[in-house]
């Protein structure tokens, strides 16, 4: 065991335990870690936005390539900042409407393509009882139909319709359970990552043997 002499590793371990201390109860160490995260994230964001967006997307095109049309979105952006001035906050609507309107226009065909047509296409596969894939395709087809019927509230869930809707609940329950299990394991692997950091990077324990 060789305890690290790297002050950065010590800092990492200190913040790891500060956050874990929340499992006991809310305390100043957790609050410190929380506020440090917010501060560091803001500072990180500033630097990244400056280098990855402001310089290549605005400064260079406008001041070096002479693409003056980009001054229009800059003006819209400045109007957005006016949101903090109550008298002129309505001017921010121009920028918001530009972004939201365009985004909504893009979303209509793209959502139809990606979330509806592609998904329907992927559901309507070869159905059959002779192969495992064919049986799985039947389960998926029936499941999608049942879930859709469950979410159709314009007709009362009674009789055959109600029965299919109930089947939809079964599929949803299995889906939620699977998602829950998957999320728990993903979070546990993050926890294992933190434990490994303390054991290997800080305490210098070689787990590989």
């Amino acid at each position: 065991m060789h305890i690290s002499i790297n002050p950065w590793v010590w800092l990492g371990v200190f913040f790891t335990f500060s956050v874990l201390s929340f499992l006991y109860k809310d305390n100043p160490f957790y609050k410190l870690a929380e506020h440090v995260t917010v501060g560091v994230s803001i500072g990180y964001g500033m630097v990244i936005i400056w280098h990855n967006a402001l310089i290549p997307r605005f400064y260079m095109p406008v001041f070096q390539e002479g693409k003056l049309i980009l001054i229009i979105p800059a003006i819209l952006g400045l109007m957005m900042i006016l949101r903090i001035v109550p008298k002129y906050s309505w001017l921010s609507r121009y920028a918001i409407c530009f972004s939201v309107g365009g985004g909504a226009g893009l979303a209509i065909p793209r959502s139809m393509q990606a979330s509806v047509l592609r998904q329907l296409e992927a559901t309507m596969l070869d159905l059959g009882f002779t192969t495992t894939q064919g049986i799985n395709n039947i389960v998926i087809f029936v499941g999608v139909l049942a879930v859709l019927i469950y979410f159709f509230f314009s007709k009362e869930h009674k009789g055959v319709f109600g029965g299919i809707a109930k089947l939809g609940i079964w599929f949803l329950m299995v889906g939620f359970g699977a998602t829950f299990g998957y999320t728990v394991m993903a979070r546990l692997s993050l926890f294992i990552g933190r434990v490994l950091f303390v054991l290997q990077d800080f305490l210098g324990i070689n787990l590989a043997g």
Binding site: A104, A107, S111, A122, T123, F141, V142, F151
Partner: peptide
């Protein structure tokens, strides 16, 4: 994960997709 979960997710996804379209149309 690949069969019943996929069916449930796809059913929900279809509903979400249609919802996004309707909301976008209402915004426009």
């Amino acid at each position: 994960l690949n069969v019943p979960n996929m069916a449930a997710k796809r059913g929900m996804g279809l509903g979400i997709g249609l919802g996004i379209m309707m909301l976008s149309l209402k915004i426009v």
